[in-house]
Computed example of a mutant assay.
Amino acid sequence: MSADDSIADFASRDVEVDGVVKTVHVSGSGPAVVLMPEMPGISPDVLRLARWIRDADFTVHVPSLFGVDGAWPTAEEGIAVLRRACVSAEFRAFAGGGTSPVTHWLRGLARSAHEECGGPGVGAIGLCFTGNFALTMTLEPSVIAPVVNHPSLPQDDPAGLELDEQDARAIRDRVERDGLTVLAYRFDNDRWCTGQRFAAYRALLGDAFDGRVLPGSSANAEPPPFFRDVVQTPHSIVTAHFVDEHGHPTRVARDEILEFLRTRLHPPKGR
């Protein structure tokens, strides 16, 4: 893929949470899954993942948080989007900033999606810049299937979690109280999401943190320009660095994520 995606098979709607309005692209039927974009936005690779989720019998909600929706991720424009996000009041890109305020809006989106779609709860998938947002969204009771993919914030602290202390305690208590599992992925040589960060998640969540590490050598060697020239490391397991081959580690990870969602959001009758 090297062209923009028209997103024509999604319905675009404006969603308001406490006076803040954002565009959300929605498709499918069944329990809701909120799929957050990675830098530099809702790329064709992110939309490919959204379609896989939709085709697994979920209603996928893709909120527009930064960048141009559907745009192919070039290096020049991607750098501009990243710089704007790093200084935005909605995000806490650096150590000491605490929890990103935009997660409050995302929790409201999950709540309204659950009311609309029904089912036992909502799945939340974060990617890169939004990776940790999936964990923070568990502060919303409807979120029961969080997937944290290669979380890159805070950018200047490899062991940081982009959480203030109060939210960290509340998340740990929610996970323990409701028996949640937090599924997470990273490449072993990812410079933006290091082993130190996964160790910090495990220190916070204990055995509830299911962190899985893939060999960086398995990453797609020809990702889009933003990932090749700016990210410069194996990073995006189920999007830019995904390899769609039977038995490939990234495809196995994709299938594990879909099964994680099915198990929690499509439980067998009687459970």
Rank of each mutant, 00 (worst) to 15 (best):
V60T: 10
V62M: 07
L65P: 04
L65D: 08
F66Y: 15
F66S: 04
V68Y: 04
A71Y: 13
A71I: 10
A71N: 12
P73T: 15
P73A: 11
E76V: 15
I79V: 15
I79P: 00
A80M: 12
A80Y: 00
R84E: 15
S88H: 09
A89T: 15
E90S: 14
G96I: 12
G96R: 10
G98W: 05
G98F: 03
G98C: 02
S100G: 08
P101F: 01
V102S: 06
H104N: 08
H104P: 00
W105V: 00
R107V: 07
R107A: 02
S112H: 12
H114I: 09
E115W: 06
E115Y: 01
E115C: 05
E116H: 13
G119P: 04
G119W: 02
G119I: 02
G121A: 09
G121F: 09
V122F: 04
G123F: 03
I125G: 10
L127M: 14
G131R: 07
A134C: 11
A134L: 09
L135M: 12
T138Y: 02
L139H: 01
P141Q: 07
P141Y: 01
I144K: 13
A145T: 08
A145D: 07
V148G: 06
V148I: 15
V148R: 04
H150G: 00
H150S: 11
L153Q: 11
Q155C: 11
D156K: 08
D157V: 06
P158F: 07
A159L: 01
